[in-house]
Each structure stands twice: as C-alpha cells, then as structure tokens.
Amino acid sequence: MLTRKQQELLLFINTRLKDGGVSPSFDEMKDALGLKSKSGIHRLITGLEERGFIRRLAHRARALEVVRLPEQLSPGVVTPKVAEPATSPRFRPNVIAGNFRANLTGREAKGDTEAVSLPLYGRIAAGLPIEAMRDNSSSIEIPASMLGGGEHYALEVAGDSMVEAGILDGDTVIIQRCDGADNGTIIVALVDEAEVTLKRLRRKGNSIALEPCNPNYETRVFGADRVRVQGKLVGLLRRYH
C-alpha cells in the first residue's frame, strides 16, 4: 500500500518518462508535489524503491526506472495530466482529499472472553512513514491471552526496517494504546500529526529518535513536539503461505 504522495510522485515520474524519456529532477518533483524541501522527495523515492515500484539506474544522473504501477490506486488518486513546460511547468495532480486520520482507536478485552475482535488498520511502514488510514470495516480475531489491560488494535507491517527485531514485511502487529513508553520500546509513532511508523523509541534531552532494527536504514531524529506515541508493540501474528 502506497501513500497518496508516493502514488502522486510515481505517476508524475512515469508520465515524464513516457513523454520525454528523462526522469524529472528532485527540484521538479518537489515543486510538482508542493513540498518545501528535497528531503521529502528523497524519502518518497526511497519508499518507492523499497517497495519495488521504481529502480535507480547506476552511473546515470537523474536515472529512475518505473518497474511497476499500483494494481489499484487509493480512492481519490487519478493519473495526473502533466502540462507542457511552455504553458505550465508545475505539475498539479487532481487529488480528492481522502479520509485519513492519525489517531487510532482500539478495543479492550473484557471478562473471560477467549478471543477479541480488534480493529485492523492499514499497513504501517517498518521502513519509511506512511499515512495511516483508519478503516473500521476491517478487524482480526486475537486470542484474549495475548492482550493485557487497556485498548488494543492491529496493524499490518510494510517494509523490512524492523527485521532484526523479528518483524517482517506482511506481519500483523498487536499494539496496546498508550501515550508514553520507555526507552527501547517498539512503538507506533505519530510524526507531525500526519504520518505513523513502527520504530524503536530513543529519547535524549528534547529530542526523540525513531530507530530501525536494520543496518540499511538510518535513525531519524525529531524534536519532542513533532512525535507522539500512539501505542506500543505487545504481540505479533505471522501467516505462512
């Protein structure tokens, strides 16, 4: 599952490659998506590459190849129409705002119940942050013995940045809702009130570090006012095919 911004960027790159055979520059991508810095484009590109949608071509500047497109676009995302540079150099995707919510509600296990039906939300990035879409139509049955006190919810994992903690792409993690956690705890972190990610929490002074469990990924550091704890990891389910 791609975020809306990832889909917009992927479609923009694909359209530019088809039109001229050359991928757009980071500055062009930044302007096209209305982002303030190229670092945001770098994160989107890395996320698309990680999920197998694009490939960087070695020894060639600005060389990107679209490997595949999503089988189905998220609601409200359509293939953009890129205007000719002579008339309008800025890419303006036609996007209808989706119903994205950052706060994730949970469900509490009560009494002697053997199983609890927990809300199952969209895929959470164990790589780069993605928007979390609240979807009350999906749920998953969890043995009550896996849950402690308080409310819980489930999330599907996308990415491989937590593999050394035993969390793989496609796993379902069980999260206990809380607004604080000890250093070293694997948490669901809400970044800038818009994105969520699954990482290990590290605090130092007024900074919060979101630490991956894979040496191929960098620890990201934020001011304490930019990160809110949405819950902590208490269980994991894995389906073998």
Rank of each mutant, 00 (worst) to 15 (best):
S161V: 00
V78F: 08
R239G: 14
G166N: 02
R56F: 06
R16V: 02
L33Q: 04
A189Q: 11
M146C: 15
Y240H: 09
N216P: 00
L201I: 06
N94K: 14
S207N: 14
Q7M: 04
T219S: 01
A158N: 08
D169E: 09
S117T: 14
E218I: 00
R200F: 02
R134F: 14
R51Y: 11
R238A: 00
V116T: 13
L147P: 08
M1T: 10
S139G: 02
R238P: 02
S145K: 11
G170H: 07
K30Y: 04
Q176W: 00
P70D: 05
G231H: 06
G34C: 03
K199N: 02
T172N: 07
R92N: 04
R90H: 01
K5H: 06
A132S: 10
G184M: 08
R202I: 14
I96L: 05
Y121T: 15
G166W: 01
G184Y: 02
N216A: 12
R92Y: 09
A154R: 07
P119H: 06
L104F: 04
I96A: 03
P89S: 04
E156K: 09
E50F: 07
S207G: 13
G231V: 01
M162V: 06
I167K: 10
V163G: 04
G223E: 09
E71S: 13
G149E: 15
S74K: 06
V66G: 05
E28N: 08
Y121H: 15
P212I: 08
L210I: 00
L120F: 01
Q72T: 12
R202D: 13
R51N: 08
T197L: 03
E164F: 06
L118S: 13
A61I: 01
D19W: 05
A32M: 06
L201G: 13
A102C: 10
T87G: 14
V22S: 11
G223A: 12
P89V: 01
E50Y: 10
E211G: 10
A109W: 00
A158G: 15
G111K: 02
I186Y: 03
T15Y: 05
E84C: 05
C178E: 15
R177Y: 07
I45D: 00
L11S: 06
V77L: 03
R200C: 08
A224S: 09
P85Y: 06
E156G: 15
L168H: 15
R4H: 05
A115R: 12
K81N: 00
